[in-house]
Every structure is written in C-alpha cells, then in structure tokens.
Amino acid sequence: MTDPDFNLLIALDALLTEASVAGAARRLNLSTSAMSRTLSRLREVTGDPLLVRAGRNMVLTPYAQSSRERARNAVLDARTVLQPSTSELNIAQLERVFTLRVNDGFIEAFGPQLIAAVAAMAPEVCLRFSPKPEKSSHFLREGLVDLEIGVLSNMGPEIRVQALYRDRFVGVVRHGHPLAGKAQVSVEEYIAWGHVVATRRGQPSGPVDEALAEMGLARKIVSMVPGFPSALAVAKASDLIALIPASFLSQTENSARLQAFDLPFKTRTITISQLWHPRMEADPAHRWLRQTVMAVCQKQCPDYHAGISG
C-alpha cells in the first residue's frame, strides 16, 4: 500500500482553516492555481469535496468540518516531532514568528521591553501582535496565535493559564483638574465628574459600576473608547476621569501629564495571565517565549507580582 503524501496535510489544514482557496494560497505563499490543483488532489485522496460553493463564498462540507481540528493537530504534532529537544534548541539561531493576541494597553506598556528582550536573545525571531477585539478561545484552539494575554475568562478547560501579575484600577485626571493632587477623593467627588471608559465591546459597565451600584450610586459616562491609550488621551485634554490599570499607567509616558488617585471604594483585583493551547506545552521555543514574557512582566511590575505563582 502506497503511503499518502503527507505534505497534503499542510495544505488541508490551510484550506480547512481559511475555508477559501485564495486564503489558503496566501497562507502558504502559493498561487491560487497551485492551491486549486492541490484541492483537487485532496478531493481525490479523501473522496470528499471538502469545499463547496455557497453563493459567492466557499463552505466546508460536513466531513471537512469534522476533520478540521484533527488536521490542525496532526500538522502541529508533526512539527513538534521534527523540532529539536530542549537541550538542543539554540535560541540565538531560532527563526520563528510568534503571534501574541493582546490589547493595545499591553502593547504600549510592555511591547517595547518584550521586543527588546526577545531581540537580544533571539535576533531572528519576530513578534507579531494580533488585535484582541473580543475574548475567544478560537484563536488558540485553531493554532492561529501562540499566546493570548489578558484577564482570564471562560476559555475552556484544556487551555493552559499562567498568571503574570495582579493589578488594580485607579482614577486618572489631567494636571490642573480640581481632583488632581488631592490626598483622598470622596465617592461624591468621584461621581460628580463625567467619565471616559475604555471598552472593547461597547459595554460601559464594569467592576467600578458594580461597586457603585451596591451603594445605590452611579457615575455619568460621557464617552466610550476602544482602549486605555485612548482613554488617557481624552482625560489629558478634558475634565473627564479615566479608569486605568495602575501598572499600565506607570509604564506609559502619558503619566507625566496626568495625575492618578486611588478609588474611594474597593473593587476586585485584576489578574493578567498568559494563555496557550496544551499542544504547545512541551514545545521548547514556546516555553522560552512564555518564560520571556513572564520575566518582562516581573521586571516591569515588581510591585504587582507579589503572590503570583504557577
């Protein structure tokens, strides 16, 4: 019996992930015609159409849908087998692109230091920061990203999690604001001013609003922006109060023109974690990346790392 062409697995993975001949071609740096010929071969081998036309788009057949995760795992397992062991891994000669799914706040606060640390140890490694408009385990499960960094949510029981640091929210106003420089801001003063809120999903409620609601109070939200950098920019040029993680504010140049103050009520602690799929657990290069991210966070946030383990 003739062994199948295992190179077809890579093409199958790309086609099932992209659900598009053109998209798979771009993913593998092939021409569309070459990928079309490969799809024809895959149809012959599997005995299934795999991709069928639905209007202007292509959709996966039931067989292709059920095989997508197996194809992805097969490709990743094969790459793991062919990678050197931990003792043989030469970080200085490692050539790889790592994709990290993070929000803008993490990039601004930790991106430069992380890039510099990686470049110093592995000059041929490229860090690709992918936007994170919503929380989803899809990107880790499909192997589209190597790491996801943020506040832990329901990502599935198989996803690996390592806490990086704990954080807390602080209020931020511009220098010259009536609340700037006050030793202690009261709840009444806090809700007397308008607020700018950073929210990816356009939903203003959060831990602060929950704490205020328990006291029968509410703040006036004047503006919603997509991230913490935007919230700081608005606060810097207005009388609005921004709500920012303390560690983020301490790592940005914006703090020179802004004044932070402790909230006049308690909110739950924020734990920032890095998450990855178990298929990458033993990969030596991925383990090195996780260790590097942890080291950078510990160095940048020594005051916010106490009590973190794992």
Results as ranks from 00 to 15, higher is better:
A122E: 05
Q291C: 14
K220D: 15
S136Q: 11
F6E: 14
N154G: 00
L39D: 04
S238H: 12
G216D: 07
H195L: 11
Q113H: 14
D104M: 09
E189P: 03
T252S: 13
Q291G: 15
H177E: 07
E69N: 13
V208W: 00
H177R: 13
A233G: 06
L94D: 12
V185I: 13
L232E: 12
P229I: 04
Q65V: 05
T269K: 14
M35K: 10
L152V: 11
L39P: 04
A211N: 01
N90Y: 08
A237K: 13
Y190G: 01
N103Q: 14
D13F: 02
I244L: 04
G181I: 01
N73P: 07
V75R: 13
P62G: 07
A11G: 08
P278N: 04
I115R: 10
A246Q: 06
Y304M: 05
A34F: 06
I308A: 08
S137Q: 10
A25P: 04
R27C: 08
L9T: 06
G216T: 10
E88F: 10
Q162D: 13
S36Q: 09
A235P: 02
Y63V: 13
V145K: 00
R160N: 11
W276H: 11
G156E: 06
I308P: 00
M215K: 15
L249W: 12
V102Q: 02
D48Q: 13
C297I: 08
V225I: 08
K220P: 01
R70T: 03
A235H: 14
F139D: 15
L114S: 03
V151I: 15
S33W: 09
F265M: 15
A14I: 08
L15S: 05
E189F: 11
Q203R: 15
F98P: 02
L289Y: 07
E108L: 12
G307S: 00
Q113I: 01
R96E: 15
R56P: 03
L179K: 02
P49N: 02
G194N: 06
A285L: 04
R219V: 09
R166S: 13
R201F: 07
M215D: 07
G307K: 04
S66I: 01
D146V: 06
A25S: 03
Y165E: 06
A306S: 12
T32F: 07
L144V: 07
I107K: 15
P62C: 00
G310I: 02
H175P: 00
W193H: 14
A231C: 01
R257M: 13
A295E: 15
L15F: 03
V172Y: 07
V293W: 12
F265V: 10
